[in-house]
Amino acid sequence: MSESLSTPHPRTRWRFAVAFGVIGSLLVAVLITAFIWPAATSSPKNLPIGISGPADRVAALTDVLAQQDPSPMSLVEVSSRQDAIDQIESREIYGAILLDEPEVLVATAASPVAAQAPRGVATQLQSQIDATVQAALVAQLAAIGEALAAGQPPALPPADAPGTQTPKVTVTDVVPLADSDPTGAGIAAATFPLVLGGMLGGILLSLLVAGAVRRLVALAVFGIAAGALSALILQTWFGLLQRDWLLNAAALGLGMTATAAFIIGMNAVFGRPGLGIAAVITVLFANPLAAAAVPVQFLPEPWGQIGQYFVPGAASNLLRSLSYFPDAATGMQWMILLCWTALGVLLALVGHYRDKPDMQVPEEQLEPETQLEAV
C-alpha cells in the first residue's frame, strides 16, 4: 500500500472548524448589512425643491414643512418658472412648486423616488383648492337663499369670481425618463456591473500580467475596450443611456479603469491581502453609498455625501448627468475618477520600485579604488 493511502490526512481541529463557521456567518452578516442598511435607513428628507409665489402662501408651506422632523423638502426660492427649469436641468434642485399658476415641476430622470415628494404636494394643493372653491360656492348659495327669502333678487357672482372656476394644479415633468427605461431601474442598475467590471479587470490584470509597465498598458487597453463594449450594450442595445455615446463610453471606461487601477495598486503594495482590502472598500463600503437609485439627501448623513467621493458614486452620478442633464456640472465627477485612477497607478509604481532589487554594477565599470574596496 502506498504511503499516500496509508497516511491519514490531517484533520482540522474542532475549535478551528467552529471558529471558521462563525467567521463565515459574520462575513455574511456584514455583507447583508452593507447592502441593506443604506436602503433600509433612507427616507425622504431635505430634498432641494424650488418655490415661488405670494409671500403668505410660501410662508404657510414653509411653516408646515418646518413642523416635520426631518423635513422632506428644503425649499429654495426661484424667481420664475424659467429659473426653476434652469435649476432643475442643471441638477441644483429636484423640482419646483409654483404657487401662482399653480404648477408643480418634477424631473423623474433625476430620481423617480424624489419626484414623488413634489407630486404629493401637488395633490395636497389640489385638495386645498377644491375645499376653498367648495366653501366659496356654499357661501354664495347661502347668500342667494337669504336674498330669495327676503324677496330680493339674488346678486349673481361674476364669471371669474371664486367658486365659479376650479383651478387645476398642473404637474410637468421637465426631464422625463427615456421610453426605453421608463422606471429608471436600468440606469440605476448600471452602477453594479460597472463596479464588478472594474474589480474583475483589476484582479485579472494583477494575477495574470507581470511587470508594472505592462500591467499599466493592459489597464489602459482594458479601460478603453471595456468602456466601448459597455456603452454598446447599455446604450446601443438596451437604450438605458442617452445622448452622446462617446462621452458615455468614456465615463464607463474611466469608472472601470479607476476601480481596476485601485485594485492593481493595492495588490502591488500589500500583495494578495491588498486585493481583499480593495474589494471590501469598493463593494461593501463605496457601492452601497453610491446613491444610484435615490437622491444623496435620502441617505443617512454624512454617508451619502461621502459616497460621492468614491468611484461608484461619482460614476453613477456622472452617467445620469451625461444621459439626461447636459447642463449639469460634471467636472467634479471626472476629477474624482481621474484621482482614483492616478492613486492606483501611483500605488502600482510604488510597489514595483519598492520590490525591485538594487541594480548591480559590473566590477569592470568601477574605479580602481572601488575595485580594491570590493575585494
Rank of each mutant, 00 (worst) to 15 (best):
P302Y: 14
W303L: 15
G255D: 02
V296E: 08
P288Q: 10
V350L: 13
I336H: 11
P295C: 03
Q297D: 14
M256F: 06
L349V: 12
V350R: 09
P295T: 06
A348K: 00
T259R: 01
A291W: 13
P273G: 07
A250D: 07
S321M: 13
A315H: 01
A261I: 03
L338W: 12
L254H: 03
A290P: 04
L254G: 06
Y309S: 12
V283W: 08
R243P: 00
T282C: 02
A348C: 10
L349S: 04
L349P: 01
L254S: 06
T257V: 14
R272F: 14
G344C: 10
W245C: 04
D327Q: 15
A293E: 09
N248Y: 12
A258V: 02
S316T: 14
I263M: 06
V345P: 11
A348D: 09
W334C: 11
A348I: 04
P302K: 14
G276Y: 15
G253D: 03
I263S: 00
F310W: 13
N317E: 13
D244S: 10
A342F: 15
V294D: 09
N248E: 10
A268V: 05
A278M: 02
V296N: 03
M256N: 03
A260R: 07
A261P: 05
T330S: 11
Q308K: 06
F262Y: 15
A268Y: 04
Y309K: 05
Y309T: 12
N267W: 07
A278T: 02
A279E: 04
I306R: 08
Y309I: 12
L343F: 14
S323L: 09
I277R: 00
L346F: 15
F262P: 02
A293L: 10
L275V: 10
M335K: 06
L299Q: 12
L319Q: 12
A260C: 07
A348L: 13
L349A: 12
R320Q: 14
A348P: 01
Q297T: 15
I277G: 05
L337F: 01
Y309M: 13
V345A: 14
F310G: 03
A258I: 03
W303M: 11
Y324C: 02
T259H: 00
I263N: 00
I281Q: 05
A251W: 03
F310A: 14
Y309N: 13
A258D: 07
P273W: 11
T282A: 03
R320E: 11
H352M: 08
R320S: 13
T257F: 12
A291E: 06
I336S: 11
L338G: 10
R320C: 02
V311P: 00
G313T: 00
A260E: 08
L254C: 02
L241R: 02
L275E: 08
G274S: 11
F262H: 05
A279V: 06
A260Y: 09
A279H: 02
C339E: 12
M266F: 14
A250Q: 11
F285N: 03
P326E: 09
